[in-house]
Every structure is written in C-alpha cells, then in structure tokens.
Design a protein around this nucleic acid. Structure first.
Lengths: 201, 201
DNA sequence: ACAGAGTCTGACCGATCGGTCAGCTACCGT
DNA sequence: ACGGTAGCTGACCGATCGGTCAGACTCTGT
C-alpha cells in the first residue's frame, strides 16, 4: 500500500533511497554509513537498496550528481566569462544559491571530497573546484587568492556545516533561527565586501 | 634495532603511532581508517597499536587532545576578554597560528567533528567551538555573525583542507608553493579586514 | 646466570560490512 | 484466466573490522 499512489513506484522508491542516502552520507559520513542504515531510514530492506542501485558507490554517485552538475555549470560560466565586478557579483549570488539549495550534497562534498578520491562522481566535483581555483589564481596575488579562498570556503562551511553542526542536540539560537532569505542576503553582503573592493563600504 | 637509540622505546612507538593515526584519520577519515593501516604506516603490527592504545577511540583521543587543549585555552581567553579591536587582532593572530601548527588535527576536527559525536575528545572540541560561537553571537547582528563565521571557517578550510586537497595528485602551483610565513601574513590581513572594520583599508 | 618487566607479534574471535541469489507478491497486457 | 515482469525481501557469502590472548624476544637489576 503506497503512501502516494499517484507516483510511479519505481521513481518513488529510488528517490526516497537517494534522499535517505544523501542525508546519511552527509551527516554520518560515507564510510561510516551502512546500506542497512540507509534502508532503515527510507523504510526498505538492504536488498531493496541494492536492487535500485548497483552498489554503495553507485548510490553515492546518484545522490551527488545533481549538485555536481550545477556546480560544473556555474564554474564553467565563471571561468569563461569576464572578471568584471558585475560578473563577480552575479557569481557570488549564484554560488550562495547553490549552497543553500544543495546543502547536504555540498556538505558531503566539502568534508569528504578529499577522502573519497577515485569515485567518479566525486572526482568530477574535485575537477570543478580545481577549475574554479585556477580561474581565481591565475594572475592573482597571494592576498587575492586568500580572499577568494576564505570567502568561498567560509561561506560554504559557515552555512552548510555550521547549520548541521548546531542542529541536532540543541535547536540553536543561531543561524537556523533566521530565514534562508535573511541568511542569503547577509552572506552575499559579506562576500561582496570581500571580493568586490569597489562595491564594499 | 631502533632507528633512534636515544629515545625511550615506549614514548617513541607511542608517538609514531599517534602521528600515523592522526595523518590517516585526517586524510582518510576515522571510520575509513583501519587499525591495520595505522600499524602499516607506522611500521608496527596491529597488535602493537592496541598494546599502546586501549582502543581505536583512545587513539583518536590521544591524537587530537593536544590541539583541542590549545583551542580551549584560546577560546576561553577570547570569551573572557574584552572585545576591543586589539583583543580581536591578537585573537586572529593566535587563531591562525593554531591552524598552521595543528593542521591535521584541525582538519580532522572540522570535517568529522559532526559525525564523531559521543567521543569525549571530539565533544570537548565541539564544546569549545560552541563557546566561541556564543561569545561571537551574543549581541551581534546577523551580518556580524556571518562575518565571523565566514572568516573563521573560511580561514580554517582554505588553509587546512585546501592544502591537503591539492597536495597529493599534483604538487600544485597553489598555496603550498608559498611559505607558511607568507600564508600567515596574508591570512591575518584578510581576517583583520573582515573582523576589524576600523583597521582595514 | 636468572627472574621479571616491558615490548611486540601471530593466531584467533564474534560482529558487521558490501554484495549475490532464489523466491515471494502484486500488478499488467492479452 | 494466466504468463511475465517489476518491486521487494530474507538467507546467505567471503572479507574485513575492532579487539583478545598467549607466547616470544630483549633488556635490566641482582
């Protein structure tokens, strides 16, 4: 008896498992997450997980691919485009939106991207980050590289990891008590301040 | 036949194992690191690891405790002291030095602190971070919270994770090609710019 | 020379991991 | 009414995990 008869069973189960896997991978870690845990969280059996996804790795790939594709598009456009202040501003806004829209995948990627080498989906993300880093670093001073690194890594970690950090044991008087819109605006301000010298204060 | 006969055997083996464990935990992840790997990297047997440390958890605790104690001291002094610009400046410099001096432990803590809940040593570190966050957030605007979050998380991640990110597969034309002193100076500049409005440009 | 403590190791244990497989059930086209 | 297929599951497999244990080797004090 399906809870939602309007959806095709195949896609529903697949999506539920993918979502449960993403949550576990991001919060507990890929290596520390067992297929049994994912199955339990989604309300299926371990065998069902392996029916829908060929392996644990394939499940990771399915869970991260959408976010990585968005990142690739964003990075490619930034790398190709001009470095004008307007282009930077647009990049910042889209970057923040990507962070907010794909919190779990980004968190997974940021904190485990290094230790999950060799998995194709992760490697694609690493490659995108490298392209971004190259675009930032070519012809930039160490100070400017540092500004970019601090800004992007800081925004990423403050939002994604920081949010999950305070979420579970106490409902935190912190970031989570603000709406995503407020956070988005404040974050864009800080990044703009850091990366667009002319526009800031 | 010891390689360094001047050192007492007990401390030497213990230190070597602790260091090897820290490296593996930080780069591969705690859950994904087996005692066998640690033993291999340090040149001992798995049994030896468990002779010197009662369990895998105890090994993690031994590997992280020094860095966490330094963090606790730093945070406690910052939380107790005044919020003057001078105090902030001193905090920034000491924070950066802690990052640079304890790269591996910080990386471990930052990227796995959330998933390793319940382990006492990790919990101590999380508590310290929480104290720091409270000290920053009480009576601060969202924008200011965001500035602090981005600055500290960004500095941490850009340095520690960024360095290990580019290290292995290519010797990187990036951060690692600069001396620690250069990085330290540039990083302190960026953080000062962000956190001490008066002092910046 | 000998006893004993400290260091180290291989063999072994139960538990759990990712993954395979045969079979059960429900639905669908004919 | 019935064969086929998609979705799902429990039983099972070899490998590997963290951890235990009894013994081997070395060094030291007497």
């Amino acid at each position: 008896m399906p809870t939602d008869a309007t959806l095709p069973a195949r896609a529903r189960a697949g999506d539920e498992l993918r979502q449960a896997a993403l949550e576990q991978f991001a919060t507990v870690g890929f290596a520390a997450t067992s297929l049994q845990q994912i199955a339990d969280h989604a309300g299926y059996s371990k065998s069902s997980v392996l029916y829908h996804y060929a392996s644990k790795e394939a499940l990771l790939e399915a869970a991260t691919t959408p976010a990585i594709e968005k990142l690739e598009v964003l990075v490619a456009e930034f790398a190709a485009g001009r470095r004008s202040d307007a282009a930077r501003g647009a990049f910042i806004a889209r970057f923040v939106d990507l962070l907010l829209g794909e919190r779990l995948a980004v968190h997974l990627f940021v904190s485990q991207g290094h230790s999950l080498r060799g998995i194709p989906a992760i490697e694609r993300g690493n490659a995108a980050i490298r392209v971004l880093a190259d675009a930032i670093c070519t012809g930039a001073s160490l100070a400017e590289q540092m500004r970019f690194g601090v800004a992007l890594a800081g925004a990423t970690y403050a939002l994604v990891a920081g949010a999950t950090f305070f979420d579970d044991d106490e409902m935190s008087q912190l970031v989570t008590s603000y709406s995503d819109d407020d956070v988005r605006a404040a974050l864009i301000d800080v990044l703009t301040e850091l990366l667009i010298p002319a526009a800031g204060r």
